[in-house]
Each structure stands twice: as structure tokens, then as C-alpha cells.
Design a protein around this nucleic acid. Structure first.
Lengths: 201, 201
DNA sequence: GTCTATAAAGCGATAGAC
DNA sequence: GTCTATCGCTTTATAGAC
């Protein structure tokens, strides 16, 4: 009797629609400008119904972040199968975040909103996945630094933070707005500056 | 009779106090979370008085951006006197932005708020200074690319945007929060990743 | 010109009917 | 469980007294 009831399935679909809407709004407008009314309208249900599933706006944001972290973890696991070299794995991971960003599907949260930050810090599912991803990438970084693929003089923490920051780097949007480059070119350009810098190795 | 009246001087001082408050609040809380009430309280005058000098919240933000752009331009002019090498000038400019950011004095605006962006686009003083700074730095970049100090394969636009982005890079705050590095170390680390990348030339 | 007081609107969150 | 209707609060912006 482990069968999932129809009701549960429908609820799951509805929750997915909500998180989809949150994800898209966080990617385009950001947290402060995203309203719960918009989320409900986009997901196709009444705001009061939404609040039965998610207890607050912060909870909505956390759910979107949990999902994108899970996607990142899935991507990381796939890369561990496909790619042996640590540096190449790190590059592939950054490439993936740039592609997600270009697709308008990278939710970004303001680090300045202390209320939101506090809520996230106390959010178990979010923190678990954040630590898991950090641990996995941290391992790659240390390995790449041993082999010289990443500068061993840099604190591995700095490398990790830089990778996270590239996931919501405004440079990509600014350059895309200029309209002079294809998405593929944009990704390769940003990847080059991330690993080679402006001087260009 | 070019003497500046006492009244004008006092108004100037008061406007400076307001822009100071805006600057600090933009640096710490960001635009959306900054309230005009806070600005008035911080600057020590009533909100209604503030609205006689600045017609909107957007105008306040623009004023803070104008001032930081003017400071950047002053810094750029000073560097043209002191430093002959284009690449060295670019590095010094990034170093300056990192120091301002560490001092908690770098106002940052959300690129996502379309109302604010539209207001800035129509703000003459802001746009003038933005173009002037872009032109000046753009010249340095092209020169540095000719001499090999900056990768000539990168679009100079990308180099410029990357420099602007480093002025509000969240990596600096994240790394500082870890408490393991002095301000001087932080600046040199970020400078290294900006120009040498993670691979480290 | 500076203030107190308030208008006007938007938002997160909830009550209560069905 | 889903909806309509509304509460309660915050925020931008202004009116009007002194």
C-alpha cells in the first residue's frame, strides 16, 4: 500500500506549479519585488490556498532555492560520472549555472535582507542541500588545486564563493543586453574571465 | 558678487547629509529595503522637508549614484597623473572600488527594478557621469589590451562590465564574514581573481 | 522652510463562507 | 481545501499649520 494517492499527486503538481512561478519571478524581478499575489496568479490558484501550502513568502523563496540546489546536486553527480578531471568538472559546473541564468531560471536572493537570511538559516532542507553542494564542490576545488588546475594560493573558500557568485553575475545580463553575442559565446566569454581572469593567463 | 550665500551653504550641507544617509543605506540594505523615513531620520530632518529637496525616492538613489560616480571620476583623474601603465591603472581602479565597498560606502542598485532603471535612464546628471566614466575606463582598457596587460581577445565591453560588477561583488562580503582575512588580504585576493582568474595565470 | 498629520496605495497574511 | 473579502501594517508622497 505504498501507492501514492491521486490527491497527493495532484497536490504535488500544484506545489510544483507554485515553485515554478516563484522560481521565474525570483529570476526576473527578485525577492523584494515579487508579490505573493503574483505567485498565486501565475500558479493559477487563490492566495489563501497558496498560504495553506506555504506558510510565508520566505518559505516560498526557500522552496525555490531548495529546488535549484537539488538540480545543481544532480548536475554535480552527473559530472562525477562523466568527467574525471576536477578542473574540468568545475568549469562544467560554472557553464551549467550560466546556462540556467541565460534561460531565466536562476532564482537569486538578496543577501542584504536580514529577515530572509535569518529564515533561510533556520530552514533545514535549504541548509542541508547548501552544505551538501558546498562539500562536494569543495572536494573538487581542493583536488584541482593539488593538480594545478586551480591556483593553490587561493583559499578554497574564495573559489567556492566565486563560483556561487557567478551563478547570479550581472555581467551576463548586461552583455546579453548589448545583443552582440550568441548565448554560446556569452557562456564561453564568462567562463574565460572566471578561470583566466581579465589578463587572460 | 559670486559669493555663495549662507543660506545656500546651509542647504548644501543639508543635502550632503541626506546623500550621505542614502549612500550608507543603499550600501547596507539596498534600494528596496531603504525607506524614505529612515533617510530623513538619519539625515536629521522631517520627511516632508526632504521631499522639498528631492522629489522622489528614485531621485534620492540617483543623487547617491551621481556622487559615487563623481568620486570614481576623481579617482580616475588622479590615477592618470600617478600611473603611466594602463593595466596598472585598471588594477588601481578596481582596488579603489573594493576599498570603498569594504568601508560600507558603495551604494548598489538592483538592476531588476524596472521603474528605478527607467528613472535613472532619464536622469541626465547620472547618465552623463556614467558615460564619462565608461569612456575614460574604456580608453584604458583598449590601451591595456594593445600592450597585452589585458586579454585582447575579450570584448572591451566585457572588461568594463566586469570592473563595474566587481564594485558590488558579493564575494567580498561573504569572505569578510568568514573573519579569516584582513581587509588588505581581501582586496589582494579579489584583485587576483579578477585579473588572473581562478586558474591563476 | 520646517514640522505634524494624513492621504492613498500596496502588500503579507487571515477569517470565514461554501 | 478552495475561494472571496478583508484586516493590519508599511510605505511613498502630500496637505496645511506655524
Amino acid at each position: 500500500m505504498a501507492r501514492v494517492s491521486l490527491k497527493e499527486q495532484m497536490q504535488r503538481v500544484r506545489e510544483d506549479a507554485i515553485v515554478d512561478a516563484v522560481n521565474q519571478l525570483l529570476a526576473t524581478k527578485g525577492y523584494e519585488l515579487m508579490t505573493v499575489d503574483e505567485v498565486a496568479a501565475e500558479a493559477g490558484l487563490a492566495k489563501a490556498s497558496l498560504y495553506k501550502l506555504f506558510t510565508s513568502k520566505e518559505e516560498l523563496a526557500a522552496a525555490a532555492m531548495v529546488r535549484v540546489l537539488e538540480r545543481a546536486l544532480a548536475q554535480a553527480e552527473a559530472l562525477e560520472q562523466q568527467e574525471a578531471d576536477a578542473r574540468a568538472r568545475l568549469e562544467a559546473m560554472v557553464r551549467w549555472t550560466l546556462q540556467v541564468q541565460l534561460a531565466g531560471e536562476m532564482p537569486t536572493l538578496p543577501a542584504q535582507n536580514s529577515r530572509l537570511v535569518a529564515a533561510l538559516k533556520g530552514h533545514r532542507a535549504y541548509m542541508d542541500r547548501l552544505f551538501e553542494l558546498s562539500d562536494r564542490l569543495g572536494g573538487w576545488i581542493v583536488e584541482a588545486q593539488k593538480r594545478g588546475g586551480v591556483n593553490p594560493k587561493l583559499p578554497s573558500e574564495l573559489v567556492l564563493f566565486t563560483m556561487f557568485a557567478r551563478a547570479c553575475d550581472p555581467v551576463l545580463g548586461m552583455l546579453k543586453a548589448s545583443g552582440q553575442y550568441s548565448d554560446e559565446q556569452l557562456v564561453e566569454l564568462l567562463l574565460a574571465t572566471t578561470f583566466q581572469g581579465l589578463a587572460g593567463g
